[in-house]
Simulated assay, not measured.
Amino acid sequence: MKKILPVLLILLLTVGLAQATGKGLTLLDDKPTVPDFTLKDVDGNSYRFSDLRGKVVIVNFWATWCPPCRAEMPSMQRAWEQLREEGILMLAIDVGEDEDAIFEFTASYPVDFPILLDTESTVSEAWEVKGLPTTFVIDQWGRKIYRAVGGREWDAPELLKKIRELKKVP
């Protein structure tokens, strides 16, 4: 029951956010360092977040049943196609689902950036995700710089500009 309550809270908040699509990124004043994690992707490969230090990383928390998550996924793929050659990484962390749900989803929404599985919702809890989708932009020192709650058009030039500027910071 303890694990079900956070997932239910996320579900309720996500339903409330379903109609809201934001445009920009919220700058986080305190710039907290992110908790480390190790998760597997849909192919069974392990990813440890601390191994990504030195890179700017976009981390998207989502679920296949979430309408705004589904709506923003094509724009995330388009953004990834622009950013991957620049050394900016993108990870999608599915909250509370298994490989079968992801495979079914990607049949209709193909993506080629890593999709990680947070089946027990431990990472989303540690990162203080309150609704889906929630996306963080992490700088090369492992700090949360930006947050976006709700769907976005991730390939929008103004969003990409802010993300790219993080690579220029000494």
Rank of each mutant, 00 (worst) to 15 (best):
P6F: 02
L11Q: 15
L13V: 05
V15P: 07
V15L: 13
G16V: 11
G16H: 14
A18C: 07
A18P: 09
Q19R: 06
A20C: 07
G24D: 14
L25R: 15
L25W: 10
T26C: 07
L28Q: 09
D30H: 14
P35Q: 11
D36C: 11
D36K: 07
D36A: 08
F37I: 03
F37P: 15
T38N: 09
L39R: 06
N45D: 11
S46G: 00
R48S: 12
R48D: 02
D51P: 01
R53P: 08
R53I: 08
G54C: 07
V57W: 00
V57C: 00
F61Y: 05
W62D: 08
C66Q: 09
Q77N: 13
A79S: 01
E81W: 01
E81R: 13
Q82G: 04
L83I: 06
R84V: 06
E85Q: 12
E86S: 11
G87M: 08
M90T: 06
A92D: 05
A92H: 06
D94V: 10
V95A: 15
V95Y: 09
D98C: 01
E99M: 06
A101R: 13
A101E: 10
I102E: 03
T106E: 06
Y109K: 11
Y109I: 10
V111N: 04
D118G: 09
E120C: 07
E120T: 13
A126I: 01
V129D: 08
V129C: 10
L132W: 08
T135H: 12
F136P: 12
V137P: 06
I138F: 00
W141A: 14
W141E: 13
K144R: 15
I145V: 15
V149Q: 12
G151R: 07
R152Y: 02
R152A: 01
P157W: 01
P157H: 01
E158M: 05
L159N: 10
L160D: 05
E165V: 00
K167F: 04
